[in-house]
Computed example of a mutant assay.
Amino acid sequence: MNLQHERIAALCAQLKLDCVATDWAPLAQRTAAADSSMADFLEQLLQAELGAREERKRQVLTKLAALPGVKAACSERTSMRREAAPHQIWPVQQQQRKVGSSMS
């Protein structure tokens, strides 16, 4: 890798342009071979960066949306409440009220 490639990689890292850092060199070669303009090169490079960011965003949102541990814990507590008879819950609720009012 030459010095210019290293500077470009460093600038891309600072700007958080991960896809640009990896895709610019091969894309520049394809653009030169196709005799395309610099504007075409820039447009394709920015489209690649945008696509990579959207894919990362989708992956993060998918990972965050799948919360089986939290859902399982909530459903266990709900099922425990359903299993308890009303006469078991009522005294506990009254005790909590008494403790709360005596603290005021």
Score class of each variant (00 low, 15 high):
A33I: 06
K63P: 01
S102D: 03
R30Y: 00
E49L: 00
V70E: 15
L50V: 08
A32Y: 08
A33M: 05
A84Y: 13
L61S: 07
A72C: 00
M38V: 15
E83R: 07
A21T: 00
T78W: 12
A34T: 06
R30P: 02
A32C: 14
L64P: 11
G51C: 03
A84E: 01
Q47K: 15
E55Q: 12
S104E: 07
R77T: 10
W90N: 07
E6I: 02
L61M: 10
P86A: 07
M1C: 11
A85T: 08
A85W: 07
R81M: 15
A25H: 14
S37P: 04
R7C: 11
T31K: 02
Q94Y: 01
D35L: 13
I8N: 01
D23N: 11
Q14I: 03
L50K: 15
S37T: 15
W90E: 06
A65K: 09
A21M: 04
Q94R: 13
L50F: 09
R58G: 04
A72R: 10
R30L: 05
A48T: 04
S79M: 14
Q29M: 03
S37N: 12
L46V: 06
A10L: 10
E49A: 00
G69I: 08
E43G: 12
Q88G: 07
R81D: 11
K63W: 04
H87M: 13
A32S: 15
Q47P: 00
T78Q: 12
I8K: 01
E55G: 00
L45I: 06
S75I: 06
K63M: 13
Q59V: 09
V92S: 05
A84K: 14
K71S: 02
P91R: 02
L3P: 05
K71G: 01
L11K: 03
L17G: 02
L3S: 08
M38N: 09
M80A: 14
P68H: 06
L50M: 14
A65R: 15
Q94H: 12
L3D: 14
T62I: 08
Q95D: 12
D35R: 13
Q95A: 11
R97Q: 13
D40M: 04
R7N: 07
L45Y: 05
C12S: 11
L15K: 05
T22S: 10
L17E: 00
R82M: 02
Q93S: 14
A72W: 00
R82V: 10
